[in-house]
Amino acid sequence: MENQSLRLKLRVWRQASSQAKGAFEMYELAAVPVHASFLEMMDLLNEQLIREGKEPVAFDHDCREGICGMCSLYINGRAHGPQRGTTTCQLHMRHFQDGETITVEPFRAAAFPVLKDLAVNRSAFDRIQQAGGYVTVNTGNAPDGNAVPIPKTDADEAFMSAACIGCGACVAACKNASAMLFVSAKVSQYALLPQGQPEHRERVLSMVEAMDMEGFGHCTNTGACEAECPKGISVENIARLNRSYLAAQLSGGGTSAVATSD
């Protein structure tokens, strides 16, 4: 493996702006180290383009350690590429073949408009969370952290839901461009904790409403989201959201909390 490098052909989506029409461009890279990450490969491409006097490819990235959720990319027909449980920044070139042609596209969804090339606007996710993804508690207003014991299983499950990094791979991978996995993970985190109960019903209704307003598609339970999620968020969250949503609608009118948990 040491000192090996790959010769690659890249088919990259280029689009000047949200309004512009995009198209694929072909590029060749002569020597990509196998231990480089996919984004480092993109860096090499950009260095090459700059040297050739061409415009570098715009793509989103930041922490490069798989947690900020900024990187995206649809690589060879898969969100974040072919490795399971991996963000693009943690995808390494050793998983590609010498001479391979790699197709790189932006995450595609009406709710994620392309800003430029491979960078898309995911602020729809922010707006969904602004609609209710919080507990109403002012700073300084909190009881002791151990005042309410939380069963370990609930805390762990809430954590599993809270592990979502908001990258949007679920939307990108879903054939309907649905955001249900994202929204359900957020709702579930609060649904599983006592702190989330008082506002549970309103939260479910308003976050789902916000999701629909953003123009995401509907969930048809294909499970692609779970399979493509770099953090392995389970579709059980979606079932929980569905349950909560139905319960919240049925109990409509009242403002009392509807507790849902497994």
Binding site: G140, F159, G196
Partner: peptide
């Protein structure tokens, strides 16, 4: 504060 916000600390 964080517990009240719903931060799922290890328990």
């Amino acid at each position: 504060q964080c517990v009240a916000q719903g931060v799922p600390f290890a328990r």
